[in-house]
């Protein structure tokens, strides 16, 4: 299939990134001390931003159903705990998840486009996307062609994203850069700009299959791309760090970053998500600790 040319001439010139400088900036975010009310509010926000995820070959109906229940009932022993933002599954599980989550505000996100490697034809990628959308996915998490990106075929990467975006219809498109394979922050920034200008509603760090995943340096770099695009166009783009954020502390540092770079406008699950599975319980334990003053055990918080 011939790839249709969209507006790849709109790829902007990305600024260079000095990694050591980024690390210093990160250290400043990490030195923010989030205590008391701010901590409680922050932790609740984190829960509401989680995309509970299962992306395994061994995923079954049973597994997905249980996860969907948890999405709505994080910890019923405790009042006022929000629901998560979404569940994230393979296309074949979308219909099941959608059914489980009917009558709830929890969204269903589906990976697509030959996830996780994306090493397939554009035709199949679009078919994959179309299938997920038809199954009822509210959000599509696509992967970019990292091989093409690393050989400098930026226009190809751009056009592919634009094509998937077109196929998404009403579903919101998250573009996974798989930053662990892009290696440098300059590449991360370039890929972010391509994704954003090609029409991404969200940009997302990783598939969760490759390490390192959502490091703060990477998330920072992507947030700056979103910031610059917003300053340029007034259009908001969402951000989803995925993989590697498993503690409440790290999640709060991410929120600090979002707040200080993009402002409180972005501090909602419409614009910021965490792709994580084990994060929720750590946050819950922290919340219960704040209320009770007692450190918690995993035995008291459901896995899934």
């Amino acid at each position: 299939m011939e790839i249709k040319s969209y507006i790849s001439n709109k790829i902007p010139v990305s600024p260079s990134i000095d990694k050591v400088g980024v690390e210093e900036r990160i250290a400043r975010f990490q030195s923010r001390s989030i205590k008391n009310e701010a901590k409680k509010q922050g932790l609740n926000m984190v829960l509401s931003m989680i995309d509970l995820t299962t992306l395994e070959g061994k995923d079954t109906e049973g597994k997905v159903k249980q996860m969907c229940y948890k999405a709505k009932h994080l910890h019923d022993h405790f009042d006022g705990i929000p629901q998560v933002a979404a569940v994230c599954v393979y296309p074949s599980m979308v219909a099941i998840a959608k059914n489980e989550l009917r009558n709830s505000s929890v969204k269903v996100a589906s990976v697509a486009t030959g996830f996780p490697s994306g090493q397939t034809s554009l035709a199949l990628k679009l078919k994959d996307t179309k299938f997920a959308v038809e199954q009822g996915a509210d959000e599509i998490d696509m992967v970019i062609s990292r091989g093409k990106f690393l050989t400098g075929e930026f226009a190809y990467v751009f056009d592919e994203i634009a094509a998937v975006k077109e196929t998404c219809g009403k579903a919101r498109l998250k573009v996974i850069l798989e930053t662990g394979e892009l290696v440098t922050l300059d590449n991360v920034r370039k890929a972010s700009d391509i994704a954003i200008y090609a029409g991404a509603d969200f940009i997302k760090t990783s598939t969760g299959k490759i390490q390192p995943a959502a490091t703060m340096q990477v998330t920072y770099t992507m947030l700056m791309a979103i910031r610059d695009y917003y300053d340029e166009t007034g259009i908001m783009v969402g951000m989803k760090p995925a993989g590697g954020i498993s503690t409440a502390k790290l999640a709060l540092h991410n929120l600090v970053m979002v707040k200080e770079i993009l402002g409180t406008k972005w501090l909602s699950n419409e614009w910021f998500r965490f792709g994580a599975s084990s994060l929720a319980n750590d946050v819950l334990m922290q919340l219960v600790k704040i209320e009770t003053g007692v450190y918690q055990s995993n035995d008291y918080f459901s896995i899934d």
């Binding site: 923010r32 989030i34 509010q41 922050g42 926000m45 929000p82 707040k259 501090l267």
Partner: peptide
């Protein structure tokens, strides 16, 4: 999501 969650997330002292 509840509105108040993201309102003015200020760091407590």
């Amino acid at each position: 999501m509840k509105k108040e969650l993201n309102d003015n997330w200020d760091y407590s002292s």
